[in-house]
Design a protein around this nucleic acid. Structure first.
Length: 457
RNA sequence: GGAGAGGUGGCCGAGUCGGCUGAAGGCAACCGCCUGCUAAGCGGUUGUACGGGUAAAACCGUACCGAGGGUUCGAAUCCCUCCCUCUCCGCCA
């Protein structure tokens, strides 16, 4: 790469783990995430944290903020004095007059100023770290609750089928049909990986094509194919960093992380940009593989392809005006649901309660598909609005036509859908007594007309 | 990997031997004027953040010319480090 200077090791130097591209505030020098909002709404933020069952406390932050402002006033007063004197010196010298007296005095002021300035970064660093760790404030319509069990069901579609024979799970179905091979995947990579073969691989590819086609041709999304690795600044923008590095795979010795969702590269397409208002809502869809470390989920869903280190997903991302975001979330969720309807898979939609809400989200609908072998619904899509949370971090703005003012956009995203889990749902819901699986009508054109997956001969 | 060029405001683009440059000039946008309509033309306005101030404004201050550091009374301008982009050569899907 041009401009790089080899170090002693002959390679590039990247930030060590946990050191990220510094948060760069909006054009400012020492701006904060939403300093004013937090300062002016301490009670509201604390209430939001309580609802989220978070242990974070604003205590200390308020004092830190006061201290910062006191010092800032001091520093800025000194700078003003210095600037005025410097201008005076310039004038004197242009008039060929002596300025050594003033210069001497400024020399001492300048060194005192340096001392005063030196105290600020530490305070601001602490405040910044804190602000980056505050989760988004839940939307007013989000029900309060402690966890998963408190998520209310919004609606249910379809009826779980009944089987006149003992149902098999997708692992057995896949093994019997020789289309899923977890043993060899483990040999190649390890646990939580899958190798699809024959109709299994075709099914996965068909689903990706089907989903993308519906979203681009019928729902008006622009298809994008982004990088599958992204840098730390991008992850900071969408909120996966700095708090959740342990969930990510990092490429050793680099600033690159494997994306855990297309949300990261796609939302960051417009990072640091001011968008023309008429381009909103911006709707994009992308297929990507997703990579997740799944640290802390040991023993959970170890069997099968429900929880993998790598899985395919078709993602929906929207960038819109604040006034549009509530409605756009409903539409986005409906767009994801449409896929399940066309595939004929029974599902329900739940609203995540405050205690179950993700870090960056203000409101989330989970779409859960029926899994016969488990006798319950499992998440297959998660549709969220982040309000201006990601936009603030990633500096995604738009210019209001009338006032000419820039405003933070709202960002949303949702799976449309998780492809691996869709494969699971299809295999299990459409299995037949003889071990074969019916291919949903909508998918057949994408599978060369194949109507049923049977044993290979 | 080797060699070179460059990163300035919404965009393009000047910045001389460091000082009066938040930053010329142009475009775009907005507000007036002019004009059968449109186009052209004329005049004016238009960055962001933080802090102070205000009922809210006005207003005042500070910072920001890729990022970080240094020199200096003073840096877009000088020095160092890093990042990124572009061009050519090499290698490669």
């Amino acid at each position: 790469m041009a401009g790089d200077t080899p170090d002693a090791g002959g390679g590039h130097t990247f930030p060590p783990s946990r050191v990220y591209t510094r948060y760069v505030p909006l054009k400012g020098d020492h701006g904060m995430l939403d300093l004013k909002f937090v300062r002016d709404n301490v009670a509201a933020v604390e209430e939001a944290l309580r609802k989220r069952r978070s242990t974070l406390s604003l205590e200390g932050f308020v004092a830190l903020d006061r201290e910062r402002r006191e010092r800032l006033v001091l520093v800025e007063r000194m700078r003003a004095e210095r600037n005025a004197a410097s201008e005076e010196i310039g004038r004197l010298r242009r008039e060929k007059k002596d300025a050594t007296d003033l210069m001497e005095r400024m020399k001492s002021l300048s060194s005192r100023l340096k001392g005063a300035e030196a105290e600020l970064p530490a305070i601001e660093g602490k405040m910044e770290e804190f602000l980056l760790s505050i989760p988004n404030v839940p939307a007013p319509s989000v029900p309060e609750g402690a966890g998963e069990e408190d998520n209310p069901t919004v609606r249910t579609w379809g009826t779980p089928g009944t089987f006149s024979f003992p149902v098999k799970d997708h692992v057995d179905i896949g093994a019997d049909l020789d289309i899923l091979d977890f043993d060899r995947a483990a040999k190649i990579a390890g646990g939580r990986f899958c190798l699809s073969k024959g109709a299994g691989a075709l099914l996965e590819r068909a689903l990706i094509g089907f989903m993308l086609d519906v979203h681009t041709r019928e729902h008006g999304y622009l298809e994008v194919l982004p990088p599958f690795l992204a840098n730390s600044a991008s992850f900071l923008g969408t909120g996966q960093l700095p708090k959740f590095e342990e969930d990510l795979f990092r490429v050793a010795g680099t600033d690159y992380f494997l994306i855990p969702t297309a949300e990261v590269p796609v939302t960051n397409i417009v990072r640091d940009e001011i968008l023309p208002v008429e381009s909103l809502p911006l709707k994009m869809t992308a297929w990507t593989p997703c990579f997740r470390a799944e640290a802390g989920s040991y023993g959970k869903d170890t069997r099968g392809m429900i929880r993998q280190h790598q899985f395919n997903k078709v993602e929906l991302v929207k960038i819109c005006r604040p006034e549009q975001s509530a409605e756009e979330l409903e539409k986005l969720t409906a767009d994801a649901e449409e896929i399940l309807k066309r595939l004929g898979l029974p599902y329900r939609v739940v609203t995540l309660c405050t205690g179950d809400l993700g870090f960056s989200a203000a409101k989330t609908y989970d779409i859960e598909v029926w899994i016969p072998s488990q006798g319950r619904y499992r998440e297959i899509s998660s549709c969220s609005t982040f309000t201006d949370f990601q936009a603030r971090r990633a500096k995604i703005r738009f210019r209001e036509g009338a006032s000419g003012k820039t405003r933070l956009a709202h960002t949303l995203n949702g799976s449309g859908l998780a492809v691996g889990r869709t494969v699971v749902a299809i295999l299990e819901n459409f299995q037949r007594e003889d071990g074969s699986v019916d291919v949903p009508e909508a998918l057949r054109p994408y599978m060369g007309g194949m109507a049923r997956i049977g044993k290979r001969c």
